[in-house]
Every structure is written in C-alpha cells, then in structure tokens.
Computed example of a mutant assay.
Amino acid sequence: MGHFEKKSAKSDPTISLTAMPDIIFMLLIFFMVTTVLREVTLQVQVNYTRAENIEKIEQKRLVSYIYVGPEKLQGNRVGNTKIQIDDAIIDDVGAVQQLMYDKLKEEPRLIVSLRVHDETEFGIVTDIQQELREAGTLRINYSTKQEM
C-alpha cells in the first residue's frame, strides 16, 4: 500500500517580536494611569517657620495642603493674606469647612497640612483651625523647615 514518510517540523526557534511594541505601549499607558502627579501652582507666598523637632509624613497621598500667605501679584509684588486650597484662592474662610469635609469623605485618613507664611497673623490660622474642626478633619499638620 502507501508508503508514509515522516516529515520533520520546520519551525523557527526564534521568538517573534511583533507584539513587543504593543506590550510596551500597554505598560506605558498602565503606569501613566496609575501614577499620581500632584502639582500645585502657588498663588500665595509661603516662607516656612523653623522648628527643631519635625516629623516627615510618609504617605503623601493622604495629605491635602492649605497655603496661607500674601497673594503673589504681577511684578514680584505681594497683596493681602489669602488662603489657597489646591489651585484655587478661597475668598471666604467659611468655604474651607465644606471643601475639607468633601475631601474627608473621599479619604477618611486625610491629613491636612497647613503651610503658613511666617509673618501671617495668627487670627486667620485660628479661623482655619475652627473650620477644620467643624469639618471633622482633626488630623492637622503644620509644615516647617528644619532648624539647623
């Protein structure tokens, strides 16, 4: 009858690299989506006070910053003391409570870091503290520079 021959498999032992750009592109998109970049354009001037004992916050994602200081104006001039949360100037101290309450609902472990200009009147800081207390954001940090 028929004679069968055994054929050897002619496969190329090299790895195909055609899918490599797709894999690299997917990884790039993954890291771009999962990376958190928090850049804030400061609209107020902040010169930190100095302190001897400071503690560094390790989990920066849990921190929301409130900047208090003279407003930066054009021509390197400064204006009246203003409050800045994220990229917005807050005209009314009473708005701090609602903004921080909303942030606390998003992140229950929220830490509020006050970055206050060293020549700012303490009355406005006290008002902000009261608003934070009413919002339930009781974890407050004061940003300083380490004294040498």
Score class of each variant (00 low, 15 high):
I57R: 01
Q84R: 02
K145P: 01
D91F: 03
E107W: 14
S113T: 00
K105P: 14
L132F: 10
M26F: 09
I90M: 03
R133G: 11
E121Y: 13
Y67I: 00
I89Q: 05
I90P: 03
P21W: 02
S11L: 07
M148I: 11
F31Q: 03
L99S: 07
V96D: 05
M100E: 03
M20P: 04
P108L: 14
R115Q: 10
S64G: 05
D127L: 15
E134L: 15
I140E: 03
A135T: 05
I128D: 07
E131M: 14
I83V: 06
M100R: 03
G123T: 14
Q97C: 11
V125D: 07
I83R: 09
V78E: 14
I111P: 00
E121W: 08
L17S: 10
V44K: 05
L110N: 09
N80E: 14
G79L: 09
L62N: 08
T34G: 02
N76K: 10
P13T: 03
F31D: 03
G69A: 07
N76H: 06
E106R: 15
D102W: 10
T81I: 15
M148L: 14
E5L: 05
F25A: 14
D91P: 04
V44G: 02
V93S: 13
T81M: 09
E134P: 06
S113A: 00
L114E: 03
P108H: 13
R61Q: 14
N80F: 14
F25Q: 09
L104N: 13
I57E: 02
L110Y: 10
T120P: 12
K7G: 00
V96I: 12
K10T: 11
I85D: 03
K56L: 03
T81R: 04
F25G: 07
L132N: 09
M148T: 13
Q146D: 06
I90Y: 04
L110H: 13
D127W: 11
T120K: 08
D87Q: 06
Q43S: 03
M26S: 08
N47A: 09
K7C: 04
K103M: 11
P108M: 13
E5A: 09
T34S: 01
L114F: 02
F122M: 15
I90T: 05
